[in-house]
Nucleic acid binder design. Structure first.
Lengths: 127, 127
DNA sequence: CCGCGAGTTCGACGAGCGTCGAAGTTCACA
DNA sequence: TGTGAACTTCGACGCTCGTCGAACTCGCGG
C-alpha cells in the first residue's frame, strides 16, 4: 500500500456545478457509502467509544462472514473514509472527519438551490 | 409509476449508530450519488437557472447517448433525489432539497465524531 | 517452538450496473 | 394529417460488485 491519503481535491468555491474531475472523486466516496453494510460500519465506528472500533467490536452487528466485513472495511479505507491501525492482536478503524465533512459540504448547496450568489434579483437577499 | 415519493423515514434523533432499516434507505440514496454522471446531473440541475433544467439543457455536458442520460435521470428520480415534470415538448427536472438535506444531516455527525448531542463544552479529550 | 485467535487475501460465483442502438411515445407545428 | 423533435423504454452486451469458503499473515501466550 503506497497510498498517500486520498484527500479530495474539490475546489472550495462554488454554488457552481461540479466539473467532471470533481465528480469522479466525489462519486467514488459516495459509492462507498452506497451500501447498507458500509454505511452502518462507518456509523458504528464513528459512534463507538473513543471514535474508534476494532473489527471484533462491530462485526457482531451483521450476519456476514469475516471476509465480507473485511472487504467492506477495505472499500471504506480505499475511499478515504476511514483509517486502520493495528495494535497488537486487533485492528482499529477510525472515521476521517475531514473527508466526510467534504461530502456533506457538497450536498448542502444541492439541498439549498436558491441560496448564495445567484441572481441579485428580488428573491432573498441576506440583507 | 405509482410511487408515492420515497421520502426517507430516518429518525431524527441520534449521534447513535444507524439501524439496519435506516441504512438501507440511506444507502440507496447514496448509491444513486455514487456515479460521476449522476452527481454532475444533480449538480447541473441544482445550479441551473430557476433550480430546474430540461434534459436538453444538460445532456450536452456529457459524451453519452440520450438513453444513457435518461437512464441516470431515472435512477435519480427513483432514489427520490429529483422530480420530473413534462411541460410541452420538454421534461424538466428539479432537485429535492428535503431529501438531499437529509443525506447531509446523516454525514455531519459522522464527520464530527466527538461533538454530537450533550456535553456543551468542547473538551476534546474525555480522559 | 507451537498453536490459537484476529483479520486479511484469494478465487469463484451470481446478481446488478452502465452503456448502447433500435423502437416506442408524446407533443408542437404546419 | 403528417412530420419532426424530445425523451423514454426495451433488449442486449460486458464489467463491476457483494458474498462466501479456503488459505494466508500477524501477534500473543504457553
Amino acid at each position: 500500500m503506497s497510498k498517500p491519503l486520498p484527500l479530495l481535491v474539490s475546489s472550495p468555491a462554488s454554488n457552481q456545478a461540479l466539473n467532471a474531475e470533481e465528480a469522479v472523486e466525489l462519486a467514488a466516496a459516495f459509492k462507498a457509502l452506497g451500501d447498507p453494510v458500509r454505511l452502518r460500519l462507518l456509523s458504528l465506528i464513528a459512534a463507538h467509544e473513543g471514535g474508534e472500533a476494532c473489527v471484533c467490536d462491530i462485526s457482531g452487528a451483521f450476519e456476514l462472514t469475516g471476509p465480507t466485513i473485511s472487504h467492506h472495511l477495505k472499500v471504506l479505507r480505499t475511499a478515504g473514509l476511514v483509517t486502520s491501525e493495528r495494535r497488537g492482536t486487533w485492528v482499529y478503524y477510525r472515521a476521517r472527519p475531514e473527508v466526510i465533512g467534504q461530502l456533506a459540504d457538497v450536498l448542502v448547496p444541492l439541498g439549498t438551490p436558491l441560496a448564495s450568489t445567484c441572481a441579485p434579483d428580488e428573491s432573498e437577499l441576506p440583507a
